[in-house]
Computed example of a mutant assay.
Amino acid sequence: MAPDGALRPIRGAARCAIAALALAGVAWAARAVWHIRLAGAGRPASGLPDQGNGVHRPLTALEDAYHSVSSAGDAVTVICAVAFLLWLDRARDNARVLSGTKPRYGYPWLFLGWIVPVMNLWVPRGMVADVHGSVFPDRKLPFVVNCWWGLWLAGLAGGVGLIYADSTDEVIARAYSGVLPLLAADLMIVAAAATAALMVRTLTTAQRQRMDEAARPTS
């Protein structure tokens, strides 16, 4: 958090967040490709990887490759989450300085808002909307904010989000039994990443314009 009255540089944080979101979109698209490949290959005659009662058969080459893709995607998603939160932290601090009002949600919610059940259905969007609304109270919230949140919730409902709710072997089983819901959720998250990048750019541009106005000497 910045000291009271101090504006924080935000352009670099926004660029990092946009790059990380683009990379996350690519990672989720790669998962979708492997889901299609698994569905096309069909369940092996030896059954599912997790055969119950703690018994796991050796993975096929395709399943083993999916484990690697999934692990890489998880790492990219963590990096994306960190980059996005760093941007949001700076944007919130600048909004507080520019508006002279405290954020609607305290600092702990920057992290807890994503993981506390029920609260995670609206707190993250509320924090982003607060960044815009506190600085531009007379402007309508950009449509891209609601678009991003709607896509994120749609993907979350499909069993994805920061990480899958299921284990990797359970996701493989889902791909074998019915891949379409899985692909729909993948598509929602890829679209959410793209709209999140656009949202970061839109809000950062608006905030920087307001920062430039505040920095101009008054006559």
Score class of each variant (00 low, 15 high):
residue 78 V to E: 11
residue 127 M to W: 02
residue 113 G to Y: 06
residue 134 S to Y: 04
residue 111 F to Q: 05
residue 103 P to A: 11
residue 102 K to V: 06
residue 73 G to H: 03
residue 108 P to H: 04
residue 75 A to R: 03
residue 141 L to Q: 14
residue 137 P to Q: 11
residue 104 R to H: 11
residue 113 G to L: 07
residue 61 A to L: 12
residue 42 G to C: 09
residue 132 H to E: 13
residue 42 G to Y: 08
residue 74 D to I: 04
residue 61 A to I: 03
residue 103 P to G: 10
residue 114 W to C: 03
residue 43 R to G: 03
residue 80 C to M: 14
residue 66 Y to T: 02
residue 111 F to L: 15
residue 48 L to N: 09
residue 93 D to F: 03
residue 42 G to W: 08
residue 129 A to K: 10
residue 137 P to H: 10
residue 117 P to K: 02
residue 67 H to V: 13
residue 71 S to R: 10
residue 74 D to M: 11
residue 70 S to Q: 13
residue 111 F to K: 01
residue 136 F to A: 07
residue 72 A to V: 14
residue 83 A to H: 00
residue 47 G to M: 09
residue 46 S to C: 04
residue 85 L to E: 13
residue 84 F to P: 00
residue 49 P to S: 05
residue 116 V to C: 06
residue 80 C to E: 13
residue 50 D to G: 03
residue 87 W to K: 00
residue 57 R to M: 04
residue 58 P to R: 05
residue 67 H to T: 05
residue 97 V to D: 11
residue 58 P to W: 10
residue 84 F to Q: 11
residue 110 L to Y: 01
residue 99 S to V: 02
residue 132 H to M: 07
residue 83 A to R: 00
residue 64 D to T: 08
residue 83 A to T: 00
residue 140 K to N: 12
residue 119 M to A: 15
residue 112 L to C: 12
residue 92 R to E: 15
residue 89 D to I: 00
residue 79 I to G: 15
residue 44 P to K: 03
residue 116 V to L: 11
residue 108 P to L: 10
residue 141 L to D: 13
residue 65 A to Q: 14
residue 101 T to I: 03
residue 101 T to N: 11
residue 92 R to G: 09
residue 66 Y to F: 15
residue 76 V to R: 00
residue 109 W to N: 02
residue 43 R to C: 15
residue 128 V to P: 01
residue 46 S to G: 12
residue 79 I to P: 00
residue 112 L to M: 14
residue 55 V to L: 15
residue 122 W to P: 03
residue 74 D to S: 11
residue 58 P to T: 07
residue 94 N to M: 01
residue 89 D to Y: 04
residue 131 V to I: 11
residue 94 N to Q: 01
residue 45 A to W: 07
residue 48 L to G: 05
residue 115 I to Y: 11
residue 63 E to K: 02
residue 85 L to T: 09
residue 100 G to L: 02
residue 70 S to C: 12
residue 44 P to N: 08
residue 86 L to N: 10
residue 90 R to C: 10
residue 51 Q to N: 11
residue 43 R to A: 13
residue 57 R to Y: 06
residue 49 P to V: 02
residue 117 P to R: 03
residue 123 V to P: 04
residue 129 A to R: 12
residue 100 G to K: 01
residue 97 V to S: 08
residue 68 S to F: 10
residue 69 V to M: 07
residue 81 A to H: 05
residue 79 I to Y: 12
residue 44 P to C: 06
residue 48 L to M: 10
residue 131 V to W: 06
residue 143 F to E: 15
residue 137 P to I: 08
residue 94 N to W: 03
residue 143 F to A: 15
residue 44 P to W: 07
residue 74 D to V: 08
residue 96 R to H: 04
residue 50 D to A: 12
residue 140 K to Y: 06
residue 53 N to S: 13
residue 121 L to H: 07
residue 60 T to V: 03
residue 138 D to A: 13
residue 84 F to K: 02
residue 93 D to E: 14
residue 114 W to E: 08
residue 85 L to K: 07
residue 106 G to H: 06
residue 62 L to H: 05
residue 138 D to W: 05
residue 52 G to K: 03
residue 135 V to F: 05
residue 64 D to K: 07
residue 83 A to V: 00
residue 140 K to V: 14
